[in-house]
């Protein structure tokens, strides 16, 4: 028993343990998702997060200790965003042909995301600071943090709302699009990239390559559009 405690206290100090745990939890989530035929609710991010949160709680590990290991995975978000140029390049002809529909979907999705979130939050009595935090929730995390801060909201809470929005979008998109009888993969992908940033794009890449390419376009363009749109939209509810 003392040996186990010694080994544990050694491993708990190195990044190795929680890096390995992150990969294993994701593999468990991904395997479960594959077994269930990529059922929307079996979202690999959601499953892995729940497994790891329970593990951290059971072992009394702080998020700081966890992140010492997980930061190596987290770091790859930047290079992966750059890498999204590749599906865009593969589908460049389809993207050029669909320039006008892309812009229409972008503006419609982005405006509705910001305005409807603010209208609902306002009607349910959220404070101005919380509305400023909520406004950029559909865009990618680094942009949302900056917008929330500029508008007088909380960057930490903005990051939470962004991640939760991404998971909601990734779970809802397939049943919603099927119910709406939308069969155009370009439209489905663009919409989820605009509404649910990178997590939605990850889902789109798993469902169909062309949806993934258009999701990457939607995510990238909405990062810029939300930055321009959010201050104006917040002014309407100020």
């Amino acid at each position: 028993m003392t040996e186990f405690v010694e080994i544990w206290s050694y491993l708990a100090e190195t990044p190795l343990l929680w890096l390995a745990a992150t990969l294993l939890a994701y593999l468990a989530g991904d395997t479960l998702a594959a077994r269930l035929g990529r059922a929307p609710l079996a979202n690999p991010v959601l499953v892995a997060v729940v497994i790891l949160a329970v593990l951290l709680w059971l072992t009394g590990t702080s998020y700081e200790t966890y992140f010492d290991g997980a930061q190596f995975v987290h770091f790859l978000l930047g290079p992966a965003t750059v890498a999204l140029a590749v599906p865009l390049w593969v589908h460049r002809r389809a993207a050029r042909r669909a320039l006008l529909p892309v812009l229409a979907g972008l503006v419609a999705g982005s405006v509705v995301a910001v305005l409807s979130a603010l209208a609902i939050g306002h009607a349910m009595g959220l404070s101005p600071a919380l509305l400023a935090t909520l406004a950029p929730k559909s865009t990618t995390a680094p942009v949302a943090l900056g917008i929330a801060q500029t508008l007088g909201g909380s960057p930490t809470l903005a990051a939470v709302l962004v991640i939760v929005t991404g998971i909601i979008g990734a779970i809802i998109v397939t049943p919603l699009m099927n119910a709406m009888r939308i069969r155009d993969w370009r439209a489905r992908g663009l919409a989820v990239g605009v509404a649910a940033h990178g997590i939605g794009t990850a889902r789109a890449l798993q469902v169909h390559p062309r949806a993934g390419a258009f999701a990457a376009i939607g995510m990238a363009l909405n990062a810029v559009l939300t930055a321009l749109l959010a201050p104006w939209a917040l002014g309407l509810f100020g």
Binding site: T22, L23, A25, Y26, D30, N43, P44, V45, L46, A48, V49, L52, A53, L56, Y63, Y66, F67, A70, Q71, V73, H74, L76, L77, A80, A141, A159, V160, I163, V164, G166, I167, G198, I199, T201, A202, R203, L205, Q206
Partner: peptide
């Protein structure tokens, strides 16, 4: 790509 969002998700 999904894997890369897990550390931030745990933070949430």
């Amino acid at each position: 790509l999904s894997l890369l969002f897990v550390p931030a998700g745990v933070g949430v």
